[in-house]
Amino acid sequence: MRFAIQINEGPYTHQASDTAYQFTKAALEKGHEIFRVFFYHDGVNNGTRYTVPPQDDRNLQKLWSELAEKYKLDLVVCIAAAQRRGILDANEAKRQGKDGDNIAPGFRISGLGQLIEAGIQADRLIVFGD
């Protein structure tokens, strides 16, 4: 089965990203396909590579990046939500005249249309949020 995942909250404050990660990992290990993981609202904060959690805690950004690499996942950060919250890739940083980017490996920034497309293409859309 083909799943799409929507994540509405950032890491650490809410459990949403943790639960979504565990769900996604379990689905992949069962042989299901993840069409896309779409990060919306504060969920875009999962996609910054500048987080440095304590060493004895999980690093959600790294977990997502590693899962993306292993399974060739499409991790999409909503551009409108990302601009509000300061998540930038190299192109956006240049376009907005900012002095650096912070997007994490395996994540890409794109439009809300990617969420709608995921809803259309996937058999099930699962929303994780607050």
């Binding site: 089965m1 565990q22 769900f23 379990a26 699962i126 929303v127 949020g129």
Partner: peptide
């Protein structure tokens, strides 16, 4: 979590009450 995946796959839609 694997059981969660099975439940999602077994239903026709998933509705989150956030």
């Amino acid at each position: 979590y694997a059981g969660f995946v099975d439940l999602a796959a077994g239903a026709s839609r998933v509705c989150a009450w956030l």
